[in-house]
Nucleic acid binder design. Structure first.
Lengths: 234, 234
DNA sequence: GTCTATAGCATGATAGAC
DNA sequence: GTCTATCATGCTATAGAC
């Protein structure tokens, strides 16, 4: 599935056409984990699931996922301990479902823009796309960034290879855009990842400085694409 | 205290003259927290403290600080529960001591290079200094990055203001170097912080790509100082 | 200074009523 | 589908012997 957007599209433009957004996610999760979720797909069930994730993000942000107790989660969602276990099979299931959303999303982004005409445009769009989707799903991205180290070895491997496959995609685009020194292209791709992640990890900082997501995306793209125009002309 | 180093100094050169290094840290901590530490300052006490921090880093890296139990810590250090409490007053003390080391260190770096002749050189040295010290004290920096959100409100405030004061120092140096658009200088300083933090947060990635700390520092400084030479000449 | 033993309580998960 | 009640376990922290 391709997304059709103008050059240097804004967050507002992106939000109107993105196929992945907060209101979709619960349905996506129910679809991908229906064995584990014993409750029926009623409206109240979807609303309860939404609350469970919302509360998990709030509580894990305060004390970490390991520090968050299921009793805290019950208090925050209004569910009882028994009721909660109708939605999750265990505490670990909860983190696995969240991680799955991010993996699914990160794999979709490069495809959205693979039809763009030039490597430079694909680079710009892919960077903006990742920044904007992480803005929309910020709590989900933040959770995986912070908690993936505490997950099981297999989950950690999946998280890392998911991150590397996106970074490798950026690296390939840099090479296509003229940066033929491959280690250099890889390093620049790693730098791009770091800049993008900072947007959702250190949000308090940008809020304090009143930087908008569009200003941020412009700044990252400018830094990432510096000197590539010159290579393109040569 | 100023450090005297050549332009574009390497990690090896930095390591020879840095006043803060792993072997100093335990003595520094004993000095700054002698009320809480009831054991005498014997050689065995210092060795036990060193083990306590080493084990804390290993275990917190696996399960998070909240997920790490003091029983795990005892097993890993070889101390008993009672023995451990001779070194720490509580589990929270442990994280507070670690955070204190990073605050102390981050405040020292800009001073080390404040005697450099030009703003561009101060920028380059300050960036390298931060990268190299975070290489030396990587587990300490990593711990504070990951765990500061789970600490008490006052600890979190201290951690954030400590990070912002370093970022503001970078921002001032950018302005001095000719980047007179202040919001732009602040944004570039934030980007520098993100790049530097990536070095100790996503170490697995750079290890995988076999990027040395000197190569990394060169790459960050190049990106950070791009276009500043031109401004300087004008 | 370091140990063993234990107090006192919170946790993840489940059983069974309705 | 959701509740209350309960289980077995594991937790931080301390008391007291040596």
């Amino acid at each position: 599935m391709y997304l059709t957007l103008p050059d240097r599209f804004t967050f507002a433009q992106f939000k109107q056409i993105t196929p992945i957004e907060p209101s979709n996610l619960v349905a996506l999760i129910v679809e991908r984990h229906d064995q584990r979720i014993t409750v029926k797909r009623s409206a109240v069930a979807q609303e309860n699931l939404r609350k469970i994730f919302e509360s998990t993000f709030r509580l894990a942000n305060k004390v970490g996922f390991a520090g968050m107790t299921l009793r805290d989660l019950c208090r925050d969602t209004g569910l009882s301990m028994g009721g909660l276990y109708g939605y999750i099979g265990s505490k670990d299931d909860l983190s696995a479902m969240i991680e799955d959303v991010i993996r699914f999303t990160s794999e979709a982004i490069p495809i959205w823009f693979s039809a763009q005409s030039s490597a430079l445009k694909r680079l710009d769009s892919t960077l903006r796309g990742h920044i904007f989707i992480s803005e929309l799903l910020r709590p989900w991205f933040y959770f995986v960034f912070m908690e993936s180290r505490t997950l099981s070895a297999s989950q950690k491997t999946i998280a890392r290879s998911s991150e590397m496959s996106f970074q490798d995609e950026l690296s390939r685009l840099f090479v296509e855009a003229g940066l033929t020194d491959i280690p250099n292209a890889q390093l620049r791709a790693a730098h791009c990842m770091a800049l993008i992640q900072d947007w959702y990890v250190k949000r308090w900082k940008y809020q304090q400085q009143q930087v908008s997501v569009d200003t941020f995306a412009d700044s990252v793209c400018r830094l990432a694409l510096l000197n590539l125009d010159a290579l393109q002309d040569a």
